[in-house]
Simulated scan of single mutants.
Amino acid sequence: MSVIGDLKDSRGLLVNLTLREVRGKYKRTLLGQGWSLLNPIAVLLIYTLVFGFVLRVPVPIGENSGVQIFALYLACGLIPWTFFSNSVTSGMGALLGNANLLRKVYFWRPTLVVASVFAWDVTFAIELLVLMAALLIVGSMPLPWLPLLLLAVVLLTVFALGIALMLSVANVYFRDTQHFVSIGMQLWFYATPIVYPYSLIQDQADRMAADGNGFPLETIYRLNPMERFVSVFRSMLYDNTWPQWGDVLFCVVVAAASLGIGIWVFTRSQHRLVEEL
């Protein structure tokens, strides 16, 4: 049966599992879904204090918006990254966390991973709405970019889902996967211009070129998919400009490749999943 057919047959289960993930994320907590806002706000404040006030990272001026606020510049990159990181991490553990369900009932196995990622889309949407409201207050106008912003959310979801599918299988067969991913995510975060502007990388590349060092720093940096995604979100939200079409095309290609490889890896490896659990 095709993947689309499997997903269509499992849509009822997918909806129920997604709702279960959303409701259970902050179950029995005093603030409930309020933590979906307080957690990123706390992280945002910490990074703003360290990088904005202590280290004095330069704050770019929004190209069309004219906004020059470090916290908002940071949020435009941090919120997409947080969604990506949480989706991959939770999706990676979806199979192990539902081992009993997998042993008892047969269903399309990737549904667990898809539901885990979709649940984080709900938090992502709330955070983006709050960010857009804050941008409107300071004079930015992100609303005209809403259709393209939704496309960017879909592409980032697809990209995260593909990686989560691959890692969820790897995590079943090799339990060290989660520890390697935890370290890798930290390195990936700082390799992406989130707490600092991309102009710092350009300046460093220029200095290396002036010193006769031909190392293609900027070219290698742009191979980072999350750098492209962050650039797309910041262009629309912070700068109020069209993102570079090269960045959008890059995001489309890596999202499609990630999902295709993820489904292929999962399909090839799922026959022994229950035994390994």
Rank of each mutant, 00 (worst) to 15 (best):
S2V: 07
I4M: 13
L7N: 12
K8V: 12
D9M: 14
L14D: 11
V15M: 11
V15R: 15
V15Q: 09
N16A: 12
L17A: 00
L17G: 00
T18F: 02
E21V: 00
Y26W: 11
Y26N: 10
K27C: 00
K27S: 00
L30I: 15
L31R: 14
L31A: 04
G32D: 01
G34P: 13
W35N: 09
W35D: 02
L37R: 13
L37C: 07
L37I: 15
N39S: 01
P40V: 07
P40W: 11
I41D: 07
V43F: 08
L45Q: 07
I46D: 04
V50Q: 13
G52L: 00
F53Q: 11
I61S: 12
I61H: 07
S65K: 12
V67N: 12
L72S: 06
L78W: 04
I79F: 13
W81V: 03
W81E: 01
W81T: 02
F83K: 07
F83A: 05
S85V: 08
S85A: 15
G91K: 14
G91M: 10
G97M: 05
F107A: 11
F107V: 13
W108E: 04
V114F: 15
V114H: 06
A119G: 09
W120P: 08
T123H: 12
I126V: 15
L136M: 07
V138P: 08
P147L: 09
P147F: 00
L149R: 14
A152L: 06
V153K: 04
V154K: 10
L156H: 09
T157R: 14
A164D: 14
L165E: 01
M166V: 00
S168D: 02
V169T: 14
V172W: 08
T177R: 10
T177C: 10
Q178A: 06
H179Q: 14
H179S: 05
F180D: 05
I183S: 15
L187R: 06
Y190D: 03
P193A: 08
P193T: 00
I194Q: 11
I194M: 04
V195E: 07
Y196E: 03
P197W: 01
Y198I: 14
Y198R: 13
Q204L: 11
A205F: 01
A205H: 13
A205V: 04
R207D: 11
M208A: 11
A209I: 02
A210N: 07
A210Y: 09
A210S: 11
G214I: 05
T219D: 03
Y221V: 08
F229L: 07
S231C: 02
V232S: 06
F233Q: 13
F233Y: 09
F233L: 03
R234Q: 10
S235P: 04
S235C: 08
M236F: 02
M236P: 08
M236C: 02
T241I: 11
P243Y: 01
D247Y: 05
D247F: 10
D247K: 10
D247T: 03
L249V: 12
L249M: 06
V252H: 06
V252K: 12
V253P: 12
A255K: 06
L259M: 09
G260T: 05
I263Q: 13
T267H: 13
Q270G: 02
H271G: 06
R272Q: 10
E276F: 04
